[in-house]
């Protein structure tokens, strides 16, 4: 049952990966990567139960945290780039 759930989560991640490759915008890719990140957290939790080692939950929390900070960092970076070239977006400056 848990193994089936783990496979299901992997399927979700694979589908999200297709979106990450297809894009088209950078935001679509980050959306997909963020989705893979939250699914990874669930996968680690399920795998912890599957292997009978619930201390994996600490790793899941750590991963969730790093994933969140990473996504926010990537988005801040995009906003900064979007705000920088004056000819395309003059209203930003």
């Amino acid at each position: 049952m848990l193994a089936a759930a783990a496979v299901g989560i992997l399927v979700v991640m694979a589908l999200a990966l297709v979106r990450a490759f297809r894009g088209p915008s950078i935001c679509d890719r980050i959306l997909a990567v963020n989705m893979i990140g939250t699914k990874t957290v669930l996968l680690i939790a399920v795998y912890g139960f599957l292997s009978g080692r619930p201390d994996f939950l600490d790793i899941a929390i750590t991963y969730a945290l790093i994933n969140f900070v990473g996504v926010i960092a990537a988005l801040k970076f995009i906003e900064r780039i979007a705000a920088s070239p004056p000819p395309t977006r003059p209203e930003e400056l």
């Binding site: 915008s25 950078i26 935001c27 980050i30 959306l31 963020n34 996504v71 988005l75 995009i78 906003e79 780039i81 979007a82 705000a83 930003e92």
Partner: peptide
């Protein structure tokens, strides 16, 4: 994400 997309 939505905000960055609008700005980009």
């Amino acid at each position: 994400l939505a905000r960055a997309a609008v700005h980009a």
